[in-house]
Amino acid sequence: MESIKVFAPATVANVACGFDIFGFAVDNPGDELILKKSDRKGVRINRIEGDEGRLPLAAEKNTAGIAIIKFLEFIGEDGQGFEMDLKKLMPLGSGLGSSAASSVAGVFAANELMGRPLSQKDLLPFAMEGERIACGSAHADNVGPSLMGGFVVIRSYEPLDIIQLKTPQELYATIVHPHIEVNTKDARNILKREISLKNTITQMGNVAGLVAGLMLPDYDLISRSLVDVIIEPIRSILIPQFDDVKNAALENGALGCSISGSGPSMFALSKDLFTANRVGKAMQDGFAKVGIGSECYVSGINQAGPVVLG
């Protein structure tokens, strides 16, 4: 193939209690990317749509571009040229893994055009380099699920150890993105560097409970475990109406509700599609009470990861 068009999905990271270790992919939104081989050495970005001109066209400063550059260097093909068109189908700074979707789309497309020299899982370190460019930290809780699909656990970063968990087919995610922006770097900088032993034990119990609840499956256990006593109390102050929106989700049948990634998007999990849609409306109404508009996305847990569109 000389060119390819791919889609990479948005993600929910942290998933309440699992800061930097949990993440899952959703069906929408996401990013589309067209990658073409070129006779000219280097990676060039022709245009980016949907970013309001905010993202860099220089490949080495762009999450998709740097992921491809690092991939080509690793396989010894840095003389291969590429041209790229990127279409952002989700808001920037949304807490939905926007930078991760771009980097995953880029390296996945490049691997396809080069004849798949690496397995999909082995592309993860290059996608993580895109995250380093975006926020200064090469975390994997967005790129992991976007690349591999499903619900993932990052057990370790050194060495990198990623586990995919089976999730109930009836589990649905509701994501509401309010029309405000939270900078990822700011959201990380406000976090405490030390936490109490009591909160650590509580959080560890919830992490273990959520894994067990997903695998059994046990919806009541999932609900009891979707509690974050470390990160959410701090980051929630950056999101207007957070408590009201969360309570609205729970009152309308959600198993749990918390911040998606670093915010401002909020997610909820429900045990059927009808409830997930009702929860979404209630959450949007909570933001609308103070004049904040929002988008709502409802989907099952995306098991596919990136896909070829043409």
Rank of each mutant, 00 (worst) to 15 (best):
S3A: 08
S3E: 11
I4Y: 04
K5C: 10
P9W: 02
N14S: 07
F19E: 11
D20G: 06
F24H: 09
F24D: 01
A25Y: 08
V26P: 04
G30H: 10
D31G: 03
I34A: 01
K36Y: 15
S38E: 08
V43F: 08
R44M: 10
R44L: 02
I45W: 12
R54H: 11
P56E: 05
P56Q: 05
L57Q: 06
A58H: 06
G65L: 04
G65H: 12
A67G: 14
A67H: 07
E73K: 15
F74R: 14
I75N: 12
Q80S: 05
Q80L: 00
G81F: 07
E83V: 07
M84D: 01
L86C: 09
L89C: 13
A101W: 12
A101T: 04
S102E: 03
S103G: 13
G106A: 06
S119C: 04
Q120H: 00
L123M: 12
F126E: 11
E129N: 05
E129S: 09
G130K: 01
R132Q: 11
I133C: 10
I133R: 12
G136S: 11
G136Y: 09
S137R: 13
A138T: 08
A140M: 13
D141M: 10
D141G: 01
G144Q: 03
P145Q: 04
L147E: 07
F151E: 04
R155K: 15
S156P: 10
S156K: 13
S156Y: 10
Y157A: 01
L160N: 06
L160F: 08
D161I: 03
Q164M: 05
T167N: 10
T167R: 00
Q169V: 00
E170W: 11
I180C: 08
V182L: 01
N183M: 03
K185P: 05
R188I: 07
R188L: 11
N189D: 13
I190K: 00
I190H: 09
I190F: 10
E194R: 15
I195R: 06
I195N: 10
L197P: 02
T202Q: 14
M215I: 08
M215N: 10
Y219D: 13
R224W: 02
R224P: 01
S225L: 11
V227Q: 14
D228E: 10
V229Y: 07
V229C: 13
E232Y: 02
E232I: 05
S236I: 05
L238K: 14
P240E: 08
Q241V: 00
F242R: 02
K246S: 14
K246F: 05
G253S: 09
A254G: 01
A254P: 11
L255H: 05
C257F: 05
S258G: 15
I259E: 07
S260P: 12
S260I: 09
F267L: 11
D272R: 02
V279T: 08
M283G: 09
Q284D: 06
A288P: 04
K289Y: 00
G291V: 06
C296S: 13
S299H: 12
G300K: 14
I301P: 06
I301C: 08
